[in-house]
Design a protein around this nucleic acid. Structure first.
Lengths: 150, 150
DNA sequence: ATTATTTATTTGTTGCAACAAATATTGTTG
DNA sequence: CAACAATATTTGTTGCAACAAATAAATAAT
């Protein structure tokens, strides 16, 4: 659906303006679509991202500091995000023995299972995208985003 | 800057995956850049959008219902958003005389002035974008976003 | 006309996000 | 080695976001 119809606005001051609006709109759309997937499990996109990063560190644990570095949306508040994951028993915290300023975060079996469960709906979403846009167009879009940011 | 460097991740499972990550990253980037502009005035992007929509209804007032229809990020909570704008004396509320379920929202002189002040930094941002990407590329990008959403 | 339904907005509640400041540990420098 | 700076995480506070439920008024149905 063209952006003009999506937000019921027929004219833009320029193609730049239209692109910027469209980018915000599409970013929100993407976030909302993914939230639908996570919602049944009482997770937010950030929780999912963090959980995957923690899994990615297997076989070792990982510190909040290191999580922050690779996070798409750099959350200022990893402590409470991990609090929530810990409360849901998806991760566990231990004091790092070699550096007591650090916490060793690792994923639990329950956390691994949840990621397994989420795998299918996430792939279904990707398949849905694949029906709309070719892989070349996707690569092209990604390059244009890089260009845009300068 | 290529997305690979921006998030320090060198490989993606596919161009689709890379595009989706890039889209979220760029959406957040755009939000953050705009927030820098609004921050000095203690506004959020949504406040700015709503304020412009209210100005757009001049010479008449506008109801929350109508604002919601054209909003990019459809906020469920317009009441409190307008509360905040009213507290800052940027808009005023009146009961609609013809339909007392509705509120007539209109922008104040102070609100108009603020939009004037924000005009320049907003245009500066657009100029910055223009240096990175041509208008044709922008139109192309916007079309690809439409295609992606299906 | 009385009741029911829909529409428009507000309110209550709960949890999350943002920012600054606090705490505790480690590293550095004179 | 004592004092200071840097690092890693937590805590406090305040405000915003999400969702359901409440209120209030207009419209429709009997």
């Amino acid at each position: 659906m063209k952006i003009e119809n999506a937000i019921k606005q027929s004219s833009f001051t320029s193609n730049y303006h239209k692109m910027l609006i469209n980018l915000m709109y599409t970013g929100n759309w993407l976030r909302d679509e993914q939230m639908k997937i996570f919602k049944q499990h009482d997770l937010l996109p950030q929780h999912f991202n963090v959980l995957r990063i923690i899994r990615g560190s297997i076989p070792g644990p990982i510190a909040p500091k290191e999580i922050k570095e690779v996070l798409i949306d750099k959350a200022g508040d990893l402590t409470r995000l991990i609090d929530k994951l810990e409360k849901k028993e998806l991760v566990k915290r231990n004091l790092c023995p070699s550096n007591r300023r650090k916490m060793d975060i690792s994923i639990t079996d329950k956390g691994l299972q949840l990621l397994e469960v989420l795998n299918e709906p996430m792939e279904a979403f990707t398949r849905r995208i694949q029906q709309n846009i070719t892989e070349d167009q996707a690569a092209n879009l990604s390059d244009l985003l890089d260009t845009l940011r300068g």
